[in-house]
Design a protein around this nucleic acid. Structure first.
Length: 428
RNA sequence: GGACAGGUGGCCGAGUGGUUUAAGGCAGCGGUCUUGAAAACCGCCGUACCUUUACGGGUACCGUGAGUUCGAAUCUCACCCUGUCCGCCA
């Protein structure tokens, strides 16, 4: 959500900024809508004030038993009614139109975000860790998983449909270990508080983080009107909704391991094999709520927390700075972490860390106040995957595979696997 | 799911159509007093929007939305939420 006052003051700058995201100029329309809204409201307020005064006089006249005077005043007020009704409807209509228009515009890119319309414009910032040399041709995760008998795509289809998988036995154990490891890291070393939020949310919550009104098609919805969360960012960020938080309490840092549900409406045909793109997957999410002057440094800190997961797992990755056209609508600036997948012979996204500035905070009406100050300010919100657990499982499988199709357990996960150090086919 | 009771400012709580401009209290902030503190006393003490160069002025908000009325925290309707009991249930 954008601040109409800012647009009013800097219309050209606003149009230039949204142009970087491929959006046509909007400021002239918005300003006109705002002008109409304000003119209706001003007149409405004045008339309403007049009515309130007269109504009070009616009360006074009746108290004095001056019925003649009261009747006279009542006809005077009655004359205001029609105009008042028209103005109220007009004001509300303009306000709704303005809010709706503003809520559909993506966030403005930060100044240090590069130009570009799609992923080709992203900038590689650094590479960490080097891909291993394999003395054999590394397999993709689905071949490894099926070879071990621990990744069952047929039963995923049987139980649910395409883009669902049943993970079994030692591999399920490994996935659980990954989640525990990540949560422990973020809570004990980076100060995040572990949460178990609802995985079904209402309209207001889905609106707050920006899924609604534009992207409802990407979500699953229950027949009772709940939305299945596409990421724990949605419930965790909305914890700040409708609050005025004392700035001495900030930052708030939350983490959660939840299932995430995505309809993948626009991804037909992409990544159809394997577990890369599922309707349901587990993810450890990081969310920070900070005062407005702290979000830039918090963004770096959060990205470091996500990178640390990959470093501890000794998985090679690169850090990308997304260009203006490739970011999600809520973000001002986004870093993607892409993990090396030797089976696929390429880097694949495993984390995305975004600074949303005040864009979500305005939608949620999430504010803060410095001690002793009267003025409230919108908080800044940040979210990042730390990491996508399903994809981390894939990355471990492909990077730690052995020639015989078994998978070594990374050192960092050994405390979580109850003695299991190698995943291999057991029994029949 | 059924029955009943509720939802008022940061918190408690009064308020069933018009001097209510939401009483009073607590907490908080400032002041007087005090070596300092406490107590006492005095004052301040919500959010947003519109308007104004400014000082200021105005409007809305008593769970949400609609309605009745010249006028609604108060009356009507719908919905949401909370509590208690019953039923069901991990």
């Amino acid at each position: 959500m954008h601040d109409i006052k800012l647009i009013r003051d800097n219309p050209e700058a606003f149009d230039r900024a949204i142009a970087r995201r491929g959006v046509a100029p909007l400021s002239a329309n918005l300003i006109e809508l705002d002008r109409k809204r304000r003119s209706a409201q001003t007149e409405f307020d004045e008339l309403q004030g007049k009515r309130n005064t007269l109504s009070k006089e009616i009360g006074a006249a009746k108290a004095k038993k001056d019925e003649a005077r009261a009747t006279e005043l009542m006809t005077e007020v009655a004359a205001l009614k029609d105009r008042l009704g028209i103005l109220e409807v007009e004001q509300k209509a303009h306000e709704e139109a303005l809010t709706d228009a503003l809520s559909r515009i993506p966030n403005l890119p930060a100044e240090d975000v590069p130009d570009g319309l799609d992923e080709k414009g992203n900038v590689e910032l650094r590479r960490t860790g080097a891909p291993k040399n394999y003395s054999f041709k590394p397999k993709e995760h689905f071949d490894l998983g099926e070879g071990l008998g621990y990744m069952d795509f047929a039963n995923g289809v049987k139980l649910a449909g395409a883009r669902f998988t049943v993970v079994k036995s030692q591999l399920a154990r490994l996935e659980r270990a990954l989640g525990q490891f990540m949560l422990d890291l973020h809570t004990s070393e980076f100060g995040y508080t572990e949460m178990q939020p609802p995985m079904l949310v209402n309209d207001a919550t889905a609106f707050g983080t920006g899924q609604l009104p534009k992207f409802g098609d990407d979500l699953f919805r229950t027949t009772t009107g709940y939305w299945l969360i596409p990421t724990a960012e949605v419930p965790l960020t909305n914890l700040a909704r409708d609050l005025i938080i004392d700035e001495s309490e900030l930052p708030w840092r939350f983490t959660a391991l939840t299932a995430c549900f995505r309809s993948e409406a626009g991804a037909a045909g992409r990544d159809t094999r394997g577990m890369i793109r599922q309707h349901q997957f587990n993810k450890v999410e990081l969310v920070s709520i900070v005062s407005p002057d702290k979000s830039v440094e918090e963004h770096e800190r959060m990205t470091e927390a996500a990178e640390t997961v990959l470093k501890r797992l000794d998985l090679p990755f690169r850090t990308m700075l997304l260009c203006a056209g490739d970011m999600g609508g809520a973000a001002r600036k986004t870093y993607d972490l892409e993990v090396w997948l030797p089976g696929q012979d390429q880097y694949r996204e495993i984390s995305s860390c975004s600074n949303c500035g005040d864009w979500q905070a305005r939608r949620m009406n999430a504010r803060c106040r410095a001690p002793g100050e009267k003025q409230t300010r919108f908080v800044h919100t940040l979210n990042g995957s730390g990491l996508a657990v399903g994809r981390a499982l894939i990355a471990v499988m492909e990077n730690y595979q052995n020639e015989d199709g078994s998978i070594s357990v990374p050192d960092a996960l050994k405390p979580y696997t109850n003695g299991l150090i190698k995943i291999e086919k057991v029994g029949k």
